[in-house]
Design a binder for these strands. Structure first.
Lengths: 355, 355
DNA sequence: GGTGTTGCTCGAATCGATTCGACCCCGCTG
DNA sequence: CAGCGGGGTCGAATCGATTCGAGCAACACC
């Protein structure tokens, strides 16, 4: 039987080889299966391994030699907790995991900007490839790091230059579609509730459109402004119902300046805005229309059904995984843009007559 | 400036050392800072590194030598997608990430049982430690693997033997508390809707209590049976609202055999059961009482407020991280049990008089 | 019997960095 | 002036496995 030998050094493949009376190379081959081995030798090695309590090659050593660690880093620009809370990210992760597993790779969760300074960073983690999610300025910094290290990288939702494959969305187009829908319904006084404008953003009115450093925010905003050039924008501090609520309260505070429609850049924000509208005694969509973005299921929003843009989140993750796979094979990975589908719910309606 | 040299082999620390005219050891020390280095040398090395486009030591090589990879594996017993969907797991992950980051470690997502067979497993990933979440039979298998490899391991919600530190919950106690609450309200005909009994479980009535291989399920069930020894159990196939719904439909199908109370082993299941009750034309809690477990926020459940047991999910994660930290330091990590808090909502009430 | 395959097995180099003891030079002290 | 201490550098061993070409035995075929 195997002995624990907890005091002693772990057995190495050389130990096993010696015990089995073969060379280390042969022993290695028994485990990797890269070369045919006679059944007898195989047995001897396996038995020796069992005897010594050897459980297979040390991944660290193996990855050094092979130059592959089987680890794909997923870089978030925010705290992991908030990433998990975002249904879109969750779906993307899922798609990504799907696509990456067959490669024999695992997903390592990484933060863009480690607060402690001691965390595992892009520089210290043994990555085969990296997937950057989001688009803050910090991300651009990470990108430089990763590229310098020569690690293949894919960016989801963010512009990283032409040499980096990118998984994107037709944000501007899609948002314009929703805005046009509102315009067709007669709306003219519209406010946009946007995602954060910068990574360190505190919620508030956006004075200067050019201050938007986050790609998604900028693109969606551009789409809205294409249709409503004069729309004011209130930028939230994150994609949460609570943030939408806070934004909505501010927006609906002054009865004289109330918009007849609100374009929210995410479904969660939209849900919060709707809640704020209810608080303010406004009916949706009779008094105010609200559009979202993402097409996720927002629990607790019933009986409302958001008018929103449905994005293929899981597919985005899967595509990123495929891109990683390609790059790992040495093939170039293409940039892919997905398109959103406009879905009309019951949160938008004709502009109120009283307007 | 740095040159890309994309065709050439990546520069190594030896290259840098040569370029700087120092020994590899000195160059290494410049990057690790383990030993004082004169400012002049430091400059020369850094300049040489910049010149060669060297971005720091290769993590693979470093981890081989140091014996540390800075990676903590988190092993789920299910598909990642379902793990992310479970609010309790999400919270745990969050706590875990919190506790593990200061160690300079990252979280590697791993599945217990890779379907493709080629995925990264406990055997092939360079782990410093592992956290096993859940408690299926498969998990026990993984546990053996990990222990054989000599990787420190912590188990959350599952029994792994005395030599493995464990983060647990007073499941039985807590569930008994909820059951007692129902009993005090006069309920006698009670059905339990349980979490899966085994990892490959299909939903259905549980004929044999001893068939339960999952620790959490077993413990909570025991707590319920302590109070209602004759209660029937319908085991779901996962902790989802839909599963609760399916279970509820089955349970409420036959008017003659309807229970007056349902003990669900998770809040999500409870939410589904409530929905099923509504479908069946039953009012909660007037016609049927329902209890949950977890104390999470179930969106869309309003106006119901579950009578449930609130568990400190984030703390569990954090505790697991702390245990990992301790073991990495070579100190023994203690098993910790957290306790749930009973919270009475509006989904339980006196047994209906008609009974 | 000679020669060409086929099928395993072995040696030795290599992956890239870290570490530890030895060593050297310089300044300070007695 | 000799001895001592210490900051800074260097050499060489080591971490554990993989890989590839060479070597070798057995077998088959002519």
């Amino acid at each position: 039987m195997s002995r624990q030998d907890s005091g002693t050094r772990r057995a190495t493949i050389s130990d096993v080889a010696r015990e089995a009376g073969v060379s280390p190379s042969t022993a290695s081959v028994v485990f990797s299966g890269k070369t045919p081995v006679s059944e007898a030798t195989r047995r001897r090695v396996l038995d020796a391994a069992a005897e010594l309590g050897y459980t297979g090659p040390d991944p660290r050593a193996a990855s050094l030699r092979r130059g592959r660690s089987g680890i794909v880093g997923v870089v978030f620009e925010e705290h992991l907790r908030t990433a998990f809370l975002d249904p879109v990210k969750t779906l993307m992760m899922d798609g990504l995991a799907d696509a990456v597993t067959p490669l024999g790779a695992g997903l390592l969760l990484l933060r863009d900007h480690e607060p402690t300074g001691s965390g595992p960073s892009l520089t210290t983690a043994p990555l085969d490839a990296a997937v950057l999610i989001g688009c803050s300025g910090l991300l651009r910094e990470s990108l430089a790091t990763v590229k310098a290290r020569g690690v293949p990288v894919v960016v989801i939702e963010g512009d990283a230059g032409d040499d980096v494959p990118r998984i994107g969305l037709d944000n501007r187009e899609a948002q314009r579609q929703a805005a046009s829908h509102l315009r067709a319904l007669g709306h003219r006084r519209v406010v946009v509730v946007s995602l954060p404008a910068r990574s360190d953003w505190e919620r508030g009115w956006l004075r200067d459109d050019t201050a938007v450093a986050v790609d998604v925010t900028r693109d969606r905003l551009a789409g809205a402004l294409d249709v409503f050039p004069d729309a004011a924008t209130y930028a939230a501090a994150g994609s949460f119902i609570d943030e939408g609520l806070a934004a909505g309260r501010e927006i609906f505070a002054d009865p004289d300046r109330r918009p007849t429609a609100v374009i929210a850049q995410s479904d969660l924000l939209a849900a919060g805005v709707i809640r704020a509208a209810e608080e303010a005694g406004l009916r949706v969509p009779e008094d105010v229309s609200v559009t979202g973005f993402d097409g996720i299921v927002v629990d607790g929003l019933a009986p409302y059904e958001l008018t929103t843009l449905v994005q293929p989140a899981t597919d985005k993750g899967r595509a990123a995984g495929a891109a990683v796979a390609a790059m790992l094979e040495g093939e170039p990975a293409a940039t892919i843009f997905f398109t959103c589908t406009f879905r009309e719910g019951n949160t938008t309606g004709p502009v109120p007559a009283a307007d």
